[in-house]
C-alpha cells in the first residue's frame, strides 16, 4: 500500500457517545482519484466517520489519516485541500446565499469565480435570497456550489443531495463526474442507491459502526447471485439439481431463479437445450446487496421468521469464505 495513492485511511476507529457505540472498529480506505460510495442507513455511523475525518470530533481509539495528515491535529492544513457538504445544511438567516457561498469558499482558501457563477446557473439558484427564505433543497445547493467552486482535491459529501429534486440530482451527478475527471477524490455518503451505482467506483457498506463489505460494485456483484428469468420451448427440468441454483420457481415453461456467478455457464447451457424463447438476466442491484446486510433487520421488523434472512446469512458466510480464500 503506497501512501500517495491513498487519500483516506481509517483503521479500527472507535467512537462512543455515552452508552452508544457510534463507530465500532471501523476500517475504511479510499484511493486517490476514486469516487467512493459510503452506504448505510441512518444512524449507521456515516456522519460520525466524516466528522472524525474533518477533525470536528475526535476518535476514542484507532487511527485516521487523510492526505497523509492527522485529521485532528492538522485540521486547518487539511481543510485547505478539501471541501465538505453536510447532509443538513444550516445557513445564516440574515446572509444571502451568494454571501454564504463566498464565505465558505474563501475561508477554504479561494474561489473560482467563473465556476461559482456557472454552478449557480446550472443549479438554478437565486444567490440574493436570504438564508432563512431558502427551502431545504436550495440550502443544499448553496453548500454544493460552495464546495465545488473551490479547488479542493478531496470532497467529503455527507448525503449531499437530500432534498434535491430529480432534475438537480442529474446536474449533481454530472458535476461530480466532472470533478472525478479532474482527478478529485470523492467520499460520497449516501443512501440513494441509484446515485451510488452511477457515480462510484468503490463502495463500502457500513452497519452499526463497522464496514461489513467493501469493494467495487463488479466485485460485489460477482460474489453474489444473478437473477435469471427464461421462457423455454419445453419445460426445463433438472435445474434444481445444478450447483449454484437458488430460489427456483417453475411456472410451466417459465422459470425464475438466482444463480451463483460460478454456476451461470452451466445454467445457460441447460436452458438452451430446452430451447430458449426469452431470456432476461440482471445482476443484483445495490438494493439487493444492501438487503443482504440489513435483511435480518427488515424481516425482524416485519415479524417474519425470515427465510430471507437465513439465506442472506448463508450467502454472507459463503462469500466470507470465498473472500478469505481470494484475498489470502
Amino acid at each position: 500500500m503506497t501512501r500517495e495513492t491513498t487519500a483516506i485511511s481509517v483503521s479500527d476507529v472507535v467512537k462512543t457517545f455515552g452508552e452508544t457505540r457510534a463507530l465500532d472498529g471501523l476500517d475504511l480506505r479510499v484511493r486517490t482519484g476514486e469516487v467512493h460510495g459510503f452506504l448505510g442507513p441512518n444512524g449507521a455511523g456515516k456522519s460520525t466517520t466524516i466528522r472524525i475525518l474533518l477533525g470536528l470530533q475526535r476518535a476514542d481509539s484507532g487511527t485516521a489519516r487523510m492526505l497523509d495528515l492527522d485529521p485532528w491535529r492538522d485540521a486547518v492544513t487539511l481543510h485547505r485541500r478539501l471541501a465538505y457538504v453536510p447532509g443538513d445544511v444550516e445557513l445564516w438567516p440574515n446572509l444571502s446565499g451568494g454571501e454564504a457561498i463566498d464565505l465558505l469558499a474563501r475561508l477554504r482558501g479561494g474561489i473560482n469565480r467563473a465556476r461559482r457563477d456557472e454552478l449557480i446557473e446550472r443549479f438554478d439558484l437565486d444567490p440574493t435570497k436570504k438564508g432563512r427564505s431558502y427551502s431545504k433543497g436550495n440550502r443544499q445547493k448553496v453548500a454544493i456550489v460552495a464546495a465545488l467552486a473551490s479547488d479542493a482535491e478531496l470532497l467529503l459529501l455527507d448525503e449531499p443531495t437530500a432534498g434535491l429534486d430529480p432534475l438537480m440530482e442529474v446536474v449533481f451527478q454530472d458535476v461530480i463526474l466532472r470533478a472525478k475527471a479532474d482527478g478529485k477524490t470523492v467520499l460520497l455518503s449516501s443512501h440513494i442507491l441509484a446515485q451510488v451505482e452511477k457515480l462510484c467506483d468503490q463502495v463500502s457498506i457500513i452497519r452499526q459502526g463497522r464496514i461489513v463489505q467493501s469493494g467495487t460494485l463488479q466485485e460485489m456483484r460477482h460474489l453474489t447471485r444473478t437473477t435469471v428469468e427464461a421462457e423455454t420451448e419445453r419445460p426445463a427440468t433438472g435445474l434444481g439439481e445444478l450447483p449454484g441454483v437458488h430460489d427456483l420457481r417453475v411456472d410451466g415453461n417459465r422459470v425464475r431463479m438466482a444463480v451463483d456467478g460460478a454456476g451461470l455457464d452451466e445454467v445457460i447451457g441447460h436452458l438452451s437445450r430446452a430451447g430458449v424463447r426469452a431470456l432476461t438476466s440482471h445482476p443484483p442491484t445495490l438494493e439487493e446487496l444492501m438487503l443482504r446486510h440489513y435483511g435480518d433487520e427488515l424481516s425482524a421488523a416485519n415479524g417474519r421468521p425470515a427465510e430471507q434472512a437465513a439465506q442472506a446469512e448463508q450467502a454472507a458466510q459463503a462469500e466470507q469464505a470465498e473472500q478469505n480464500g481470494t484475498s489470502r
Partner: peptide, 10 residues
C-alpha cells in the same frame, strides 16, 4: 449546525 461547515474550512 452553522459552525460545522465553517470549521470544515481552513
Amino acid at each position: 449546525g452553522r459552525a460545522e461547515p465553517l470549521l470544515a474550512t481552513a
